[in-house]
Simulated scan of single mutants.
Amino acid sequence: MRKTPFTISIDDDRLDDLHCRLRHTRWPDSLPDMDWADGTDLTFLQRLTEYWRTDFDWRAQEARLNAFPQFVAELDGVGIHLIHQRGKGPDPHPLVLTHGWPGTGFDMAGLIPLLTDPGGHGGDPADAFDVVVPSLPGYGFSERPTRPGSGPERVSGMWTRLMTGLGYPRFGTQSSDWGAAVSMWLASRFPERVSGLHVTFVPGFYRPPLGEGQPPLSAEERAFHERAAAWFEAEGGYHRLQSTKPQTPAYALTDSPAGLAAWIVEKTRGWSDCDGDVERAFTMDALLTNISIYWFTGTIGSSMRFYRENALRPNHFGPGARVRPPMGVASFPKDVMPPRSWVERVFDVTRWATMPRGGHLGVMEAPEPLAEEIRAFFRPLRGRRTS
């Protein structure tokens, strides 16, 4: 595997082009007093984009992100961007962190130092990890796939080759959203490589074996399915579109920074533990750093295509399926999570924790309690072999 150092460096003329596009935004109308009921609130988006044009300091954020050791590794002909931070401790355990949509590996910026240097953040140095944070193909500074089939299953194989190339024959995984889909494939396909599987989300398309010979759905499981169906009916429009026709919205979102910001910030607000006020969970700078990465790399279309790839190849488990590596779950209170019994139909869940705060984007909202939970889950697994 070829791995080369990487530094973010956006040309000044691309910044000028962004500011010009923002200055000439054509705004749609909006019904009065609708707030966020119809989608992204017009008043908020105008304030966000004006801040983006006049006050947001991309160069300061670029320098902050460049403080992380970054590389590009070629895997299956695709250049994958990654952060590789060595741990400070007597025997750091390798851990690959995988993000979701609409994010990149930089979602883990607040979590990485807590895992690599626990001794420097009030923890035990014996809990240190060597952390590897790749960005999914077609996300952020990772290259776009040039052929179909680059969904979670394929990425799970890419991650095993990445960790092998970095010198880690055995490693843990931690993830949410699409990262959880990748990690579940990884643990089921390559159990001998995975010391433990930790997630903060169980994808809705996860399907254990059901029907004849299987336990009937419990009342708690039925209630979860009703709750998830109601959520999808109210909030799942983006998912249906991105799973079926991702190319169509890609034209508009790749061309309009205001449109891109509207698409991403609506999900950031709706999925976080903020009671409707996104600035309670994220600063303007945090929102715009993520949006800017998507803008400068032009990867919103390729990121959405991941939904289409998964729809063509979902991870459904047949009768008798068991995934052997131990699994830990950190459930954030504002996320839509199944009961433990639903997950245990296939996975060996050894730890299930309810987090004190946070939503679907909990890795950014509450990195400190999440880091503590990750350390606790992996503590008994260090040095253990799986088969």
Rank of each mutant, 00 (worst) to 15 (best):
K3S: 15
T7N: 12
D17P: 01
L31G: 11
G39F: 07
T40R: 10
L45E: 13
R47A: 13
W52F: 00
T54N: 09
D55C: 14
Q61C: 13
P69N: 10
V72N: 14
G77F: 09
V78K: 01
V78E: 03
G79A: 14
I83P: 03
I83T: 14
V96N: 02
G100P: 10
P102V: 13
F106P: 01
D107F: 05
M108C: 12
A109K: 07
G110V: 04
T116M: 02
P125L: 13
F129I: 04
V133C: 12
P137G: 08
G138I: 04
R147A: 15
G165W: 01
S176K: 01
D177I: 09
A181Y: 02
P191E: 06
R193N: 11
V194S: 02
V194A: 08
H198T: 04
P203N: 09
Q214G: 02
A223V: 05
H225N: 07
A230D: 14
W231Y: 14
E235L: 07
L241E: 15
P246E: 06
D255K: 09
I264T: 05
G276L: 08
A281W: 00
T283H: 00
I293T: 12
T297M: 03
M304R: 10
E309P: 07
A311D: 11
A311N: 12
N315A: 11
N315P: 01
P319S: 08
P326I: 09
G328N: 06
R340S: 07
E344G: 03
R345F: 05
R357W: 04
R357T: 11
G362M: 04
R379D: 08
P380G: 07
L381W: 07
